[in-house]
Design a protein around this nucleic acid. Sequence first.
DNA 1: GCTTGACCTTGACGCGACGTCAAACTGTTC
DNA 2: GAACAGTTTGACGTCGCGTCAAGGTCAAGC
Lengths: 253, 253
Amino acid sequence: MRIGELAALVGVSTRTVRYYHHLGILPEPERLPNGYREYRLRDAVRLARVRHLAGLGLSLEELRDALADDRGVDFREALQELDADLARQQEAIAARRARLAALLAQPGLSPESMMSPDAAAVLRDLGGGGSAFGAFDHELLTLATMLSDEEGQAGLAELMRPMTEPGALATGHELYRRLDELADARAGDERIGPLAADMAAHIPDELAGMVPSGPGADLSWMETMLGELSPAQAEVLRLLFAELTETDAKEKT
Amino acid sequence: MRIGELAALVGVSTRTVRYYHHLGILPEPERLPNGYREYRLRDAVRLARVRHLAGLGLSLEELRDALADDRGVDFREALQELDADLARQQEAIAARRARLAALLAQPGLSPESMMSPDAAAVLRDLGGGGSAFGAFDHELLTLATMLSDEEGQAGLAELMRPMTEPGALATGHELYRRLDELADARAGDERIGPLAADMAAHIPDELAGMVPSGPGADLSWMETMLGELSPAQAEVLRLLFAELTETDAKEKT
DNA sequence: GCTTGACCTTGACGCGACGTCAAACTGTTC
DNA sequence: GAACAGTTTGACGTCGCGTCAAGGTCAAGC
């Protein structure tokens, strides 16, 4: 039997057969005088076994070990390990499908809304109000949301929802406008203090409590992002953060 | 923000970030005078989105298209297609696990028993009886079994089971012995005819009915395998096959 | 004899999503 | 000024083959 016949018999390509020789999974048979490989019954059986194991999901390396070790116990262990691995894959896929289903359930689906649906809704309602700072803030919130786990996203969404009510929204946009005015201001501008205070008042207390979120919380990236703003705008946010964490500390005592 | 900070923030490696630049998934940011990449908030948001989509199982190419096309409909379609694909994967894994469970349920598990459990049991009981031809026959049956689908395996196992009963087994081993005696015989040996007849009598009628199994059935590999036997042994099997298919043809009329 | 076509041989590149190493930088700290 | 952590580009490795290249072998048809 030549390689093409063997391959057709078992249902693989000749390339696959030669690859198995290369890996030592299938022993090289004798050669005919013309150099062709000459296969026998036992090679076909071996190849069929290999394909069966591969079809179950074993890697070719695992499979080679299993067929080499030959006897019982390790083989059963290998299959059990494979089963456990497949179970993990099933769970992973199920989790992905669950997230997908949640995404597909929301009406205004877009690449921007790749997060927990309520968080996406809140962020969409929040908008940026046509303000440059509003756009920046929106991106900040988006990033903070996407870097949180699912519970964090749910919590954020819940706490931010009050800010999407018409009155709060108008107040927020007014604050954005005042921040836009600081686009070219220096660090010492006298409008900084009052603006930070008004912003702190506008943010719900519970939301403030989420900001530091633990001792290992890494806020250095926030500081980095402030570099994209004008000095005055950055100062407002720094002041705001200080006030929020103070409030939070008081509440915790 | 430099590449390491960005990567740590979003939870990927710097290699990944550069790879995304290479694929055009993440735009190359401006460079600092020293040649370092300088990232901004919007890059972090984009990267987080990319990771989220990748985490759902989209390929980087699909994901790039989704983020480029930007708007709604195709995006929803892409996600639905992904969901269908994941569903198919789930089914495939479930099928593999089912086969695995069937294998793990059998007591004498070994690499040789990689087939339907009852077929494996029958083949094990059948054995080769220490005969050279018996070993060959065992391999032939093994291959025929492994090349069949699950129903074929079940059918074969059921029909072969009678041959594993003590009396039939002894008869079978006696036949193997007589075939071994033909290992060096020529094609015209006078023992060929009677032996083929005795073998045909030993094989259940229903099993004979499975041999050709359809008009497109490819039996040329059988003929090929006969090349491994002595001319006389091959003749016996050819005669046997002829008798079996005759019997079968009679039954069908 | 010659060509055609089907098969075989070895060898090399390609995929997808990066990991890893190499060699040469910049920039900060002792 | 030496060590170190970070950055740059570039290239190779992964896994299970598919695919192409550049030939050699063999049977059939002209």
